[in-house]
């Protein structure tokens, strides 16, 4: 209990503190913040729906691309749900890898996206927004998304979503049609991931095929592993990965990949993944 309160206070401090610091720290914090929103979106899909996506960079990256090509296209970003959702036909066990492979495929494909003579491996320039403003927007969105997920998760509706996660046949036996609940859950998660992608593009003012790279597709999984599947600690986990990799990269090349390797190996031992698994 005490630990969880401490974590919440720490997260709040991490959210507020950068407002008073210099541009560089704010950029780092903003980057960690968007990735925290990204992690929260992933965590909802994994916790409440039981689908662990290793290709969550699909909604993240596609929305970032749409936003960069034309900011008005951002309204289409919730449609990215229909890129990720069809992969659920592979079943819960294969879904992580199907989504991972699909995100890698999009990574390659993104090198070929050319629009009005721009793009390709160079990527697109995204509308850049004032850092202070976007930082405040990101903080608001993170808090709102946590609230939203908390609210949905604890409602009767959320209970049905969780029921579908645990056993679709049992859900049918008590009259719950699983499809709409699944689509709804995917839509919530993908929309949040899309928002994170758009914020990411707006912060760096540029979108390149790198948004589909394993760095992003595996990020939420790794952050959630560090946070042991709890929402607040996973936010802290995102900050940890971002800060550690920025600060340690000059000493250990691509430090984040070392963190990734450790987190993936640990995650396969600890039970923090695909929770519906634990039942049967």
């Amino acid at each position: 209990m005490l630990v969880s309160i401490a974590i919440r206070i720490l997260v709040l401090v991490l959210l507020i503190l950068p407002v008073f610091l210099d541009c560089y720290t704010k950029l780092l914090a903003a980057s960690a913040l968007t990735l925290a929103i990204f992690t929260v979106s992933w965590l909802y899909l994994e916790k409440d729906l039981g689908w662990a996506s290793l290709g969550h960079s699909i909604p993240f990256g596609v929305s970032a691309y749409l936003f960069a090509i034309n900011p008005l296209l951002l309204f289409f970003s919730p449609l990215t749900t229909f890129l990720l959702f069809p992969l659920s036909i592979f079943g819960k066990h294969t879904f992580p890898f199907a989504s991972f492979v699909f995100s890698v495929f999009l990574w390659y494909l993104a090198h070929h996206i050319v629009f009005e003579g721009k793009g390709g491996e160079e990527g697109f320039r995204a509308p850049s927004i004032n850092l202070d403003l976007i930082y405040l927007i990101s903080v608001t969105i993170l808090i709102l998304s946590c609230l939203l997920i908390w609210k949905i998760s604890n409602s009767y509706f959320g209970l049905k979503v969780k029921a579908v996660r645990d056993d679709e046949i049992a859900a049918k036996a008590i009259g719950i049609n699983s499809l709409p609940f699944k689509v709804f859950g995917f839509a919530i998660s993908c929309s949040l991931a899309s928002i994170a992608g758009i914020l990411h593009a707006a912060i760096f003012g540029h979108v390149s095929p790198g948004v589909f790279s394993p760095y992003f597709s595996l990020f939420p999984f790794v952050a959630a592993t560090i946070g042991q599947g709890k929402i607040w600690s996973s936010i802290l986990g995102s900050y940890t990965v971002v800060f550690l990799s920025w600060f340690l990269s000059p000493y250990v090349p691509e430090f984040h990949y070392a963190i990734y390797a450790v987190a993936l190996i640990l995650a396969s031992y600890t039970q923090s993944y695909a929770r519906s698994d634990r039942s049967v």
Binding site: A52, H93, P96, F97, P214, V252, P253, E254, Y257, A258, Y260, A261, V262, A263, L264, I265, A267, S268, Y273, A274, D277
Partner: peptide
């Protein structure tokens, strides 16, 4: 699934070791 995740971890670890 867990074994696959494990193998992905090993993959990244080997890659990182080669890079260093």
């Amino acid at each position: 699934s867990k074994a696959t995740i494990f193998s992905l971890g090993i993959a990244i670890a080997i890659e990182e070791a080669l890079r260093i």
